[in-house]
């Protein structure tokens, strides 16, 4: 029944361009889709390992910059008289490199912060995002600084027998983002239900017990961070090639917060949570724009985040699933964070 809902949802999303002609709404849907991919990657960490990355936009932004620079080419001087000259490569190579390099950054951040638990990962990820933003702002020779990287080429896909297809229109980009989102969803779903996924949830719910049954905590957490960062990098690459201009503002903290709100509202630790939360918070600005000033919208966002945490602390999807589903399918939704156990641990 669950996969039926999933297939229906994908079909519904795929049919949207058939009846929606408004370019503004299409644009909102595409950027929302890109942010949902980012939110899904954040959920992998926050929902399944309990580690909150508050610098997630760094991986997204690194993906965007890597992809853009790969496809634009660059020529930078390094210390000791070295120079790196890079001729443009196809954007699809940039997409792959974005995943690899963002994943590598995830590895470094994980390596650094998983030596200690608790608030450290949060603070290290924030700091990392801020350092990356400062580098993007100050390394003008590479990134153009605040002048932004412009004229980023659109993604070109080689179709067998049909030649190259350059994805320029909103319609094409919509389907590109939808496909990547579906692949991401399936990937995370497979991962969560694998041995690795059980290890992640096990150590989230009771780390001491997880260690005692032989789960390598640091390795599991770091791997989760790598995968999560890689997916965020893919989302960033899509963003760069769709918007076709990026500047250091992409690293703005508020973008991370948007993803966090999407995950928390939809339900952390639920596969569909980021999609539901993402649709709500991705499209809310479209409807709020005519009636509210942007500042008032952000006040409302902050308020909604607080209210959700008070009223539906587990998020929309898990709460609904618990209310409507039969007892059997309750087990299918991934178990919520065992608050009591973690509390006991923290005070111990």
């Amino acid at each position: 029944m669950k996969s039926g809902v999933a297939i229906l949802t994908v079909v519904a999303f795929a049919s949207v361009p058939l009846w929606l002609r408004d370019p503004y709404l299409m644009n909102a849907l595409i950027t929302t889709g890109i942010f949902i991919i980012g939110a899904m990657s954040l959920n992998l960490l926050l929902g399944f390992t309990g580690q909150l990355s508050l610098g997630h936009i760094a991986f997204f932004g690194i993906g965007a910059y890597v992809s853009a620079l790969t496809s634009l080419g660059f020529d930078v001087g390094l210390p000791f008289g070295l120079r790196i000259v890079h001729v443009p490569w196809p954007p699809i190579v940039g997409f792959v490199l974005a995943i690899v390099i963002a994943g590598l950054c995830g590895y470094l951040v994980g390596l650094l912060s998983f030596r200690v638990r608790g608030a450290y990962f949060v603070i290290v990820t924030i700091s990392f995002a801020e350092v990356v933003r400062l580098v993007a702002l100050n390394w003008v020779e590479l990134t153009q600084g605040p002048l932004a990287l412009t004229n980023i080429p659109s993604i070109t896909i080689g179709l067998p027998g049909l030649g190259d297809l350059t994805l320029r229109t909103k319609l094409q980009n919509y389907y590109l983002v939808l496909s990547v989102a579906v692949v991401t969803y399936l990937l995370i779903s497979r991962l969560v239900h694998s041995h690795f996924g059980r290890a992640m949830r096990g150590l989230m719910e009771n780390e001491t017990l997880a260690v005692s049954v032989g789960i390598d905590v640091t390795k599991t957490l770091t791997l989760a961070a790598v995968i999560s960062a890689g997916i965020a990098g893919a989302a960033g690459s899509l963003y760069a090639h769709y918007i076709r201009i990026i500047d250091p503002e992409v690293f703005a903290f508020i973008n991370t917060v948007t993803m966090v709100i999407m995950v928390i509202t939809g339900g952390k630790g639920s596969l569909a949570g980021p999609v539901v939360g993402g649709m709500i918070f991705g499209l809310l600005p479209v409807f709020l724009r005519p009636i509210m000033a942007p500042e008032a919208q952000w006040i409302a966002y902050g308020g909604v985040l607080i209210v959700i945490l008070f009223v539906l602390p587990r998020g929309i999807v898990p709460s609904l699933a618990q209310r409507f589903a039969k007892p059997r399918s309750r087990a299918e939704t991934v178990a919520p964070v065992a608050f009591a156990e973690r509390d006991a641990k923290e005070h111990a």
């Binding site: 909150l52 966002y301 902050g302 985040l305 607080i306 945490l309 608050f339 923290e346």
Partner: peptide
């Protein structure tokens, strides 16, 4: 409640 919940509530308050 756990440290994550209060942290997220504080983030909400900060944004607002």
């Amino acid at each position: 409640s756990d440290i994550d919940t209060t942290m997220l509530v504080m983030i909400g308050a900060w944004i607002a």
